[in-house]
Amino acid sequence: MSLSNRHLLGLHGVPKEDIQLILETARTFREVLERPIKKVPTLQGKTIVNLFYENSTRTRISFELAQKRLSADTINFSTSTSSAKKGETFKDTVRNIEAMKVDMIVVRHQSAGVPQYLTKISKANIINAGDGIHEHPTQGLLDMYSIREKFGRLEGLKVCIVGDVAHSRVALSNIFGLKTMGAEVSVCGPATMIPLGIESLGVKVYHRIDEAMAKNEVLNVLRIQLERDAGKRIPSLREYHKFFGITSDRIEKHNREIVILHPGPINRGVELSSEVADGPYQVILDQVTNGVAVRMAVLYLLGTMH
Protein backbone atom coordinates (compact mmCIF):
# COMPACT_ATOMS: atom_id res chain seq x y z
CA MET A 1 0.00 0.00 0.00
CA SER A 2 1.25 3.45 -0.73
CA LEU A 3 -0.08 6.98 -0.86
CA SER A 4 -1.44 8.48 -4.06
CA ASN A 5 0.67 11.65 -3.85
CA ARG A 6 4.36 12.02 -3.09
CA HIS A 7 3.76 15.25 -1.16
CA LEU A 8 1.49 16.14 1.74
CA LEU A 9 0.42 19.69 0.94
CA GLY A 10 -2.96 19.69 2.61
CA LEU A 11 -5.93 17.45 3.30
CA HIS A 12 -8.08 19.04 0.61
CA GLY A 13 -8.63 16.39 -2.03
CA VAL A 14 -6.67 13.66 -0.23
CA PRO A 15 -8.58 10.40 -0.77
CA LYS A 16 -10.10 8.44 2.09
CA GLU A 17 -7.78 5.48 1.46
CA ASP A 18 -4.72 7.67 1.95
CA ILE A 19 -6.00 9.07 5.23
CA GLN A 20 -6.87 5.57 6.41
CA LEU A 21 -3.42 4.32 5.48
CA ILE A 22 -1.73 7.14 7.38
CA LEU A 23 -3.88 6.57 10.46
CA GLU A 24 -3.29 2.79 10.38
CA THR A 25 0.45 3.26 9.94
CA ALA A 26 0.45 5.76 12.79
CA ARG A 27 -1.08 3.12 15.03
CA THR A 28 1.95 0.89 14.48
CA PHE A 29 4.32 3.74 15.28
CA ARG A 30 2.26 4.66 18.31
CA GLU A 31 3.17 1.22 19.67
CA VAL A 32 6.83 1.82 18.90
CA LEU A 33 6.67 4.94 21.06
CA GLU A 34 5.68 2.81 24.05
CA ARG A 35 8.74 0.56 23.72
CA PRO A 36 11.87 1.08 25.81
CA ILE A 37 13.85 1.63 22.61
CA LYS A 38 11.81 4.00 20.51
CA LYS A 39 13.86 4.00 17.38
CA VAL A 40 13.45 2.15 14.08
CA PRO A 41 15.87 2.19 11.14
CA THR A 42 13.22 2.87 8.49
CA LEU A 43 14.53 6.16 7.10
CA GLN A 44 18.23 5.54 7.67
CA GLY A 45 20.24 7.49 5.10
CA LYS A 46 17.41 9.88 4.26
CA THR A 47 18.02 13.58 4.75
CA ILE A 48 15.18 15.80 5.86
CA VAL A 49 15.23 19.57 6.17
CA ASN A 50 12.84 21.35 8.48
CA LEU A 51 12.36 24.69 6.82
CA PHE A 52 10.58 26.93 9.32
CA TYR A 53 9.88 30.49 8.27
CA GLU A 54 7.58 31.07 11.19
CA ASN A 55 8.07 30.54 14.89
CA SER A 56 7.08 27.12 16.04
CA THR A 57 8.04 25.05 19.01
CA ARG A 58 5.80 22.06 19.27
CA THR A 59 5.30 21.29 15.60
CA ARG A 60 8.99 21.54 14.91
CA ILE A 61 9.95 19.40 17.91
CA SER A 62 7.29 16.86 17.00
CA PHE A 63 8.58 16.58 13.44
CA GLU A 64 12.17 16.44 14.59
CA LEU A 65 11.44 13.72 17.08
CA ALA A 66 9.51 11.74 14.48
CA GLN A 67 12.48 12.02 12.11
CA LYS A 68 14.96 10.90 14.77
CA ARG A 69 12.76 7.95 15.76
CA LEU A 70 12.89 6.88 12.11
CA SER A 71 16.70 7.29 12.03
CA ALA A 72 16.67 10.02 9.37
CA ASP A 73 19.32 12.73 9.24
CA THR A 74 17.69 16.05 10.01
CA ILE A 75 18.65 19.65 9.57
CA ASN A 76 16.77 22.60 10.98
CA PHE A 77 16.50 25.87 9.18
CA SER A 78 14.56 28.39 11.19
CA THR A 79 14.08 32.04 10.55
CA SER A 80 11.37 34.39 11.60
CA THR A 81 12.23 36.99 9.01
CA SER A 82 10.86 36.61 5.53
CA SER A 83 13.29 35.95 2.73
CA ALA A 84 12.20 39.21 1.16
CA LYS A 85 13.48 41.20 4.12
CA LYS A 86 16.69 39.22 4.30
CA GLY A 87 17.62 39.96 0.73
CA GLU A 88 17.80 36.38 -0.51
CA THR A 89 14.69 35.20 -2.26
CA PHE A 90 12.84 32.18 -0.96
CA LYS A 91 13.54 30.44 -4.25
CA ASP A 92 17.29 30.93 -3.89
CA THR A 93 17.24 29.66 -0.32
CA VAL A 94 15.42 26.53 -1.43
CA ARG A 95 17.70 26.00 -4.40
CA ASN A 96 20.70 26.19 -2.10
CA ILE A 97 19.23 23.61 0.21
CA GLU A 98 18.24 21.47 -2.76
CA ALA A 99 21.82 21.59 -4.05
CA MET A 100 22.91 19.89 -0.82
CA LYS A 101 20.85 16.84 -1.88
CA VAL A 102 17.97 16.48 0.51
CA ASP A 103 15.18 13.93 0.27
CA MET A 104 12.34 15.66 2.09
CA ILE A 105 11.43 19.17 3.11
CA VAL A 106 9.07 19.93 5.97
CA VAL A 107 7.97 23.52 5.54
CA ARG A 108 6.18 26.10 7.61
CA HIS A 109 5.59 29.55 6.18
CA GLN A 110 3.49 32.68 6.73
CA SER A 111 2.21 32.56 3.16
CA ALA A 112 -0.41 30.14 1.94
CA GLY A 113 0.72 28.25 -1.13
CA VAL A 114 4.42 27.98 -0.29
CA PRO A 115 4.35 24.15 -0.10
CA GLN A 116 2.75 24.02 -3.58
CA TYR A 117 5.40 26.43 -4.84
CA LEU A 118 8.13 24.22 -3.35
CA THR A 119 6.96 21.24 -5.39
CA LYS A 120 7.74 23.27 -8.49
CA ILE A 121 11.26 24.26 -7.51
CA SER A 122 12.43 21.18 -5.60
CA LYS A 123 12.57 17.47 -6.28
CA ALA A 124 12.19 16.55 -2.61
CA ASN A 125 9.00 15.25 -1.03
CA ILE A 126 7.26 18.25 0.49
CA ILE A 127 5.35 18.14 3.76
CA ASN A 128 3.30 21.13 4.78
CA ALA A 129 3.78 21.96 8.47
CA GLY A 130 1.44 24.97 8.23
CA ASP A 131 1.14 27.57 5.48
CA GLY A 132 -0.35 30.88 6.50
CA ILE A 133 -4.03 30.48 7.28
CA HIS A 134 -4.40 27.71 4.74
CA GLU A 135 -3.66 24.16 5.93
CA HIS A 136 -1.82 22.23 8.60
CA PRO A 137 -2.42 18.68 7.41
CA THR A 138 -0.43 16.75 10.02
CA GLN A 139 -2.38 18.57 12.74
CA GLY A 140 -5.61 17.57 11.00
CA LEU A 141 -4.39 13.97 10.84
CA LEU A 142 -3.35 13.82 14.47
CA ASP A 143 -6.69 15.31 15.51
CA MET A 144 -8.45 12.62 13.50
CA TYR A 145 -6.21 9.96 15.00
CA SER A 146 -7.00 11.20 18.51
CA ILE A 147 -10.73 11.29 17.86
CA ARG A 148 -10.67 7.82 16.35
CA GLU A 149 -8.64 6.53 19.28
CA LYS A 150 -11.37 7.78 21.61
CA PHE A 151 -14.44 6.70 19.63
CA GLY A 152 -13.13 3.87 17.47
CA ARG A 153 -14.51 5.57 14.36
CA LEU A 154 -14.84 8.88 12.52
CA GLU A 155 -17.80 8.07 10.30
CA GLY A 156 -20.95 9.84 11.44
CA LEU A 157 -19.27 11.56 14.41
CA LYS A 158 -20.37 15.12 15.13
CA VAL A 159 -17.33 17.36 15.42
CA CYS A 160 -17.43 21.11 15.99
CA ILE A 161 -14.44 23.39 15.46
CA VAL A 162 -14.60 26.34 17.84
CA GLY A 163 -12.88 29.71 17.58
CA ASP A 164 -11.24 31.86 14.93
CA VAL A 165 -12.02 29.55 12.04
CA ALA A 166 -11.36 32.28 9.47
CA HIS A 167 -7.73 32.60 10.48
CA SER A 168 -6.92 29.01 11.30
CA ARG A 169 -5.04 26.51 9.21
CA VAL A 170 -5.99 23.82 11.73
CA ALA A 171 -9.67 24.44 11.01
CA LEU A 172 -9.42 23.96 7.26
CA SER A 173 -7.36 20.77 7.51
CA ASN A 174 -9.83 19.39 10.06
CA ILE A 175 -12.79 20.28 7.87
CA PHE A 176 -11.35 18.69 4.74
CA GLY A 177 -10.05 15.55 6.48
CA LEU A 178 -13.06 14.92 8.69
CA LYS A 179 -15.52 15.46 5.85
CA THR A 180 -13.63 12.93 3.72
CA MET A 181 -13.81 10.43 6.56
CA GLY A 182 -17.56 10.86 6.85
CA ALA A 183 -17.82 12.96 10.01
CA GLU A 184 -20.43 15.69 10.40
CA VAL A 185 -18.44 18.88 10.77
CA SER A 186 -19.61 22.20 12.15
CA VAL A 187 -17.93 25.40 13.26
CA CYS A 188 -18.73 27.76 16.10
CA GLY A 189 -17.48 31.23 16.88
CA PRO A 190 -18.33 34.90 16.74
CA ALA A 191 -19.37 35.90 13.21
CA THR A 192 -16.20 37.94 12.75
CA MET A 193 -14.24 34.71 13.05
CA ILE A 194 -16.29 32.58 10.65
CA PRO A 195 -15.43 33.07 6.96
CA LEU A 196 -18.26 34.19 4.70
CA GLY A 197 -19.72 31.31 2.76
CA ILE A 198 -18.09 28.54 4.81
CA GLU A 199 -21.37 26.63 4.46
CA SER A 200 -20.34 25.88 0.89
CA LEU A 201 -17.63 23.63 2.34
CA GLY A 202 -20.47 21.55 3.74
CA VAL A 203 -20.23 22.60 7.38
CA LYS A 204 -22.91 23.87 9.71
CA VAL A 205 -22.36 27.17 11.51
CA TYR A 206 -23.18 27.84 15.18
CA HIS A 207 -22.87 31.21 16.84
CA ARG A 208 -23.87 29.95 20.29
CA ILE A 209 -21.44 27.72 22.09
CA ASP A 210 -24.14 26.18 24.27
CA GLU A 211 -25.97 24.91 21.23
CA ALA A 212 -22.74 23.65 19.64
CA MET A 213 -21.86 21.74 22.82
CA ALA A 214 -25.29 20.17 23.14
CA LYS A 215 -25.30 18.95 19.55
CA ASN A 216 -21.74 17.65 19.09
CA GLU A 217 -19.68 14.77 20.38
CA VAL A 218 -16.30 16.40 19.87
CA LEU A 219 -15.13 20.00 20.20
CA ASN A 220 -11.86 20.92 18.56
CA VAL A 221 -11.13 24.20 20.31
CA LEU A 222 -8.78 26.57 18.50
CA ARG A 223 -6.34 28.90 20.11
CA ILE A 224 -7.29 32.57 20.00
CA GLN A 225 -4.28 33.88 18.15
CA LEU A 226 -3.52 37.41 19.21
CA GLU A 227 -0.51 37.27 16.90
CA ARG A 228 -2.98 36.97 14.03
CA ASP A 229 -4.85 40.10 15.05
CA ALA A 230 -7.64 38.18 16.77
CA GLY A 231 -8.02 41.25 18.99
CA LYS A 232 -9.53 43.19 16.10
CA ARG A 233 -12.34 40.69 15.69
CA ILE A 234 -13.50 40.45 19.30
CA PRO A 235 -14.02 43.23 21.83
CA SER A 236 -11.89 41.52 24.49
CA LEU A 237 -10.56 38.15 25.60
CA ARG A 238 -12.81 38.41 28.64
CA GLU A 239 -15.87 38.78 26.45
CA TYR A 240 -14.73 35.90 24.27
CA HIS A 241 -14.34 33.68 27.30
CA LYS A 242 -17.73 34.66 28.64
CA PHE A 243 -19.59 33.80 25.43
CA PHE A 244 -17.41 31.17 23.73
CA GLY A 245 -15.06 29.80 26.39
CA ILE A 246 -15.36 26.12 27.30
CA THR A 247 -15.92 25.85 31.04
CA SER A 248 -16.78 23.03 33.42
CA ASP A 249 -20.15 24.65 34.03
CA ARG A 250 -21.00 24.52 30.37
CA ILE A 251 -19.87 20.90 30.09
CA GLU A 252 -21.92 19.90 33.15
CA LYS A 253 -24.93 21.70 31.80
CA HIS A 254 -24.87 20.72 28.14
CA ASN A 255 -22.91 17.57 27.47
CA ARG A 256 -21.07 15.40 29.94
CA GLU A 257 -19.92 13.00 27.24
CA ILE A 258 -18.09 15.58 25.19
CA VAL A 259 -14.45 15.15 24.14
CA ILE A 260 -12.29 18.28 23.92
CA LEU A 261 -9.32 18.69 21.58
CA HIS A 262 -6.97 21.65 21.41
CA PRO A 263 -3.98 22.05 19.08
CA GLY A 264 -2.04 24.01 21.71
CA PRO A 265 -0.62 26.17 23.07
CA ILE A 266 -3.62 26.85 25.28
CA ASN A 267 -4.66 30.31 26.39
CA ARG A 268 -6.00 29.34 29.78
CA GLY A 269 -9.00 31.40 30.77
CA VAL A 270 -9.70 32.34 27.16
CA GLU A 271 -10.81 29.46 24.95
CA LEU A 272 -10.60 26.89 27.75
CA SER A 273 -10.92 27.37 31.48
CA SER A 274 -8.02 25.86 33.44
CA GLU A 275 -10.35 23.27 34.93
CA VAL A 276 -11.28 22.05 31.48
CA ALA A 277 -7.70 22.18 30.23
CA ASP A 278 -6.67 19.83 33.03
CA GLY A 279 -9.97 17.97 33.34
CA PRO A 280 -11.24 14.57 32.31
CA TYR A 281 -12.90 15.62 29.04
CA GLN A 282 -9.79 16.67 27.20
CA VAL A 283 -7.27 14.61 25.22
CA ILE A 284 -4.79 17.41 24.67
CA LEU A 285 -1.64 15.56 25.74
CA ASP A 286 -2.71 12.42 23.89
CA GLN A 287 -2.85 14.63 20.80
CA VAL A 288 0.77 15.60 21.37
CA THR A 289 1.94 11.97 21.65
CA ASN A 290 -0.19 10.96 18.69
CA GLY A 291 1.31 13.84 16.76
CA VAL A 292 4.72 12.17 16.81
CA ALA A 293 3.26 8.86 15.63
CA VAL A 294 1.23 10.49 12.86
CA ARG A 295 4.26 12.44 11.63
CA MET A 296 6.33 9.27 11.70
CA ALA A 297 3.67 7.63 9.56
CA VAL A 298 3.63 10.49 7.04
CA LEU A 299 7.44 10.64 6.85
CA TYR A 300 7.69 6.88 6.51
CA LEU A 301 5.01 6.59 3.81
CA LEU A 302 6.41 9.46 1.74
CA GLY A 303 10.06 8.60 2.39
CA THR A 304 9.73 5.02 1.21
CA MET A 305 7.65 5.73 -1.90
CA HIS A 306 9.12 4.83 -5.26
Binding site: H12, A112, G113, D131, G132, I133, H134, E135, A166, R169, L172, P195, L196, G197, I198, S200, L201
Partner: peptide, 15 residues
Protein backbone atom coordinates in the same frame (compact mmCIF):
# COMPACT_ATOMS: atom_id res chain seq x y z
CA UNK B 1 -5.86 40.62 1.77
CA UNK B 2 -4.14 38.91 -1.15
CA UNK B 3 -7.08 37.88 -3.34
CA UNK B 4 -10.83 38.22 -3.78
CA UNK B 5 -12.78 37.34 -0.64
CA UNK B 6 -15.10 34.43 -1.16
CA UNK B 7 -15.30 30.68 -1.43
CA UNK B 8 -11.94 30.38 -3.19
CA UNK B 9 -10.06 32.52 -0.67
CA UNK B 10 -11.47 30.37 2.13
CA UNK B 11 -10.36 27.24 0.30
CA UNK B 12 -6.88 28.61 -0.35
CA UNK B 13 -6.32 30.11 3.07
CA UNK B 14 -5.58 33.55 1.72
CA UNK B 15 -6.97 36.67 3.36
Amino acid sequence: GAMNEGYTSTLLGLA
